[in-house]
Amino acid sequence: MSLLNAALRRLFDLLLYPFQSLPAAVGLTVVSLLAAIGMLWAFKKTSNQAGIEAAKRRIYAGVFEIRLFNDSFRQIWRAQAAILRANLTYLRHQLKPMLFILPPLVLAVAQLQFQYAYAPPAAGSRTVLEATLAPGWESGGVETSPSGKPRAELVLPAGLVAETPALWIPSERTLTWRLRVEQPGDQTIAVRIGGRLYEKSLDGARPLERRSPVRPGRSWLDQLVYPAEPPLPADGALERVSVDLAPAEVALPGWTVREMVGVPAWMTVFFLLSILFAFALRKRFGVTF
């Protein structure tokens, strides 16, 4: 997983490099167009186009039948049953191309999430850094205070200031600091604990670059969800390190898209544009869906 993520990180860094200094909407438009083209191509290659056409025709026929024989209950019920069967057939024909399209799309979305979902930390803003200790950390050579609090040191680059001492919550195995961003930049925060350094990036030099709220541990699921940074060492005292990042907005002409009910702004824009491009290009690709 980590090798795949490393390769994808490089690919997307390269792909999005020309858009780093441009408004997010520009890069998203290009990415949505490429995604629409990719999905159309994959759909055409992997779907039963004739079957889809036939299923759609049967649905149209059923609807037409209901309109024609609207005074006959029997005919209406029969037409509705035919529409239902055709719908199921249609969905079955969609399933196969989705199996080909979804896995790369999920990986791409995971990468795009960390390029577009989070705003760069602004000067004067605050964030919270949380280091979660691994289960069984007590036996890992981590020094503790008399109260049982693990001794940890925060190593901060210039431009970041810790406003609080470490807060230890034993039930959550977390050490938490509140940080203030004095000078945004591509920064690396390090937590020294048990004689080792654990790093977490906090990049804010450019509007568009990889930013992740979590540096994951060895958990496969964590790595799938947070692929933007390499995982922490498996034998370390820390299980994960996270920072709070503010959600980013996407400014379109006449519409500033914001995070809504947990859906990041970029995702709204990406899916809207992808669908629009796919509809616009479907005839050129000779695809029906």
Partner: peptide, 22 residues
């Protein structure tokens, strides 16, 4: 309010909101 055992600092948790306060 989660209190640190050694330092005068605490985490406040209200619903989904969290704040670190000295």
């Amino acid at each position: 309010v989660h209190l640190d055992p050694d330092e005068p600092v605490a985490k406040l948790v209200v619903g989904d909101e969290e704040r670190i306060l000295k």
